[in-house]
C-alpha cells in the first residue's frame, strides 16, 4: 500500500504496555505466566495486531512467539479468543478479541492474557485451545436431517418474519467458546441452546426438535461441560449477544423430549 511507506500508524496515540501472558508449550506440560514489555503500540491497532507486533519482537530476541488462534479478524469466524484482564474477549461489550482495539487501553497498563480455561477445552499451546467438544455437540444433533436435493420450493412454507428473526438471532452464534470460559461451571448451555433455539423456531426444525434437544444435551454432559446455575456470565461476555432465554427454551424442548 502506498501509505505503508508514509506516516506509520495514522493518527493513533502510542502506548507502552506490560503484558502478562500464559505460556504453555503443549497440552502435556504445565504452563506459567510470563511478563513482556512492549512499546510503540498505536491505539489504532487491533488487539491481535498488538500480539503480532509482540511476536515479531520476540522472534528478533530469539524467543518463542506466542501461539494464538485467529483467522477472519473481523469478528465472525469464532477462531480467536482469550481472557484479557479476566474478561473473555477483553473489555469491550459484544466484541470479539480480534475486533477489540488498543484504544480501549491506556499508556502504562499491565494486561494479563490467558487462554479459555475449561476441562472440555484443553490447551494446545499458549492461548490456543482445543474446542473439538463443540464439534461433537453439533454432530450429535445440531441439524435438520435432509440430504442433498429433492427439497420443496423455498417459498412452499411461509415462515412468519418474527420467527425467522428469532431463529436468526440465535443462529448468529460464532462458536467461539467465550460463554464456556466465562462460566464458573464451564457450562456449554448458551452455545448449545443457541443452536437448538435457531432450529426450533423454524417449521423445518419441528420434526426432530425433542430428539435433537435430548441428543445434544446428552453430548454436552458426556463431554465434560458443567451445569447451568444461572450466573449469567455467558450472556455478559457473548460477542454476538446470544440471550439466556435460549437456555430456558432448550430446557422446555428437553422436557418435551422426556414426556
Amino acid at each position: 500500500m502506498a501509505t505503508l511507506n508514509g506516516t506509520s500508524n495514522g493518527h493513533g496515540k502510542m502506548l507502552s504496555l506490560t503484558l502478562q501472558i500464559w505460556r504453555q508449550k503443549n497440552s502435556k506440560t504445565k504452563g506459567r505466566m510470563e511478563e513482556y514489555k512492549i512499546k510503540g503500540v498505536s491505539t489504532e491497532m487491533s488487539f491481535l495486531e498488538m500480539l503480532d507486533m509482540l511476536n515479531e519482537q520476540l522472534i528478533k530476541e530469539g524467543k518463542d512467539p506466542v501461539a494464538f488462534d485467529h483467522d477472519c479478524r473481523e469478528g465472525i469466524c469464532g477462531m480467536c479468543g482469550a481472557m484479557v484482564n479476566g474478561y473473555a474477549h477483553g473489555p469491550d461489550e459484544a466484541t470479539t478479541l480480534c475486533q477489540t482495539h488498543m484504544r480501549s487501553f491506556s499508556d502504562g497498563d499491565t494486561i494479563t492474557i490467558e487462554p479459555w480455561r475449561a476441562k472440555a477445552f484443553p490447551v494446545i499451546k499458549d492461548l490456543a485451545v482445543d474446542r473439538t467438544s463443540f464439534e461433537r455437540i453439533i454432530q450429535s444433533g445440531g441439524y435438520i436431517s435432509v440430504g442433498t436435493g429433492g427439497t420443496p420450493d423455498a417459498n412452499a412454507i411461509p415462515i412468519p418474519k418474527e420467527a425467522a428473526d428469532r431463529a436468526m438471532d440465535a443462529a448468529q452464534c460464532i462458536g467461539c467458546g467465550a460463554c464456556v470460559a466465562a462460566c464458573p461451571n464451564a457450562s456449554a448451555m448458551l452455545f448449545t441452546s443457541a443452536k437448538i433455539s435457531h432450529l426450533a423456531n423454524l417449521p423445518q426444525g419441528q420434526v426432530e426438535r425433542h430428539l435433537r434437544a435430548a441428543n445434544m444435551i446428552r453430548a454436552m454432559d458426556e463431554l465434560g461441560f458443567g451445569n447451568c446455575t444461572n450466573h449469567g456470565e455467558c450472556e455478559a461476555v457473548c460477542p454476538k449477544e446470544i440471550k439466556m432465554e435460549n437456555i430456558a427454551l432448550m430446557n422446555r424442548e428437553y422436557f418435551g423430549a422426556m414426556m
Partner: peptide, 22 residues
C-alpha cells in the same frame, strides 16, 4: 434456484417479509 430450496430445508434463516415469504 435449487440452492435456495436446499438451504431453506436445512434451516438457513434467510430474511423474510411480513407475509412469511423470502
Amino acid at each position: 434456484v435449487n440452492i435456495i430450496d436446499q438451504c431453506v430445508a436445512q434451516g438457513v434463516p434467510f430474511a423474510r417479509e411480513y407475509g412469511g415469504l423470502l
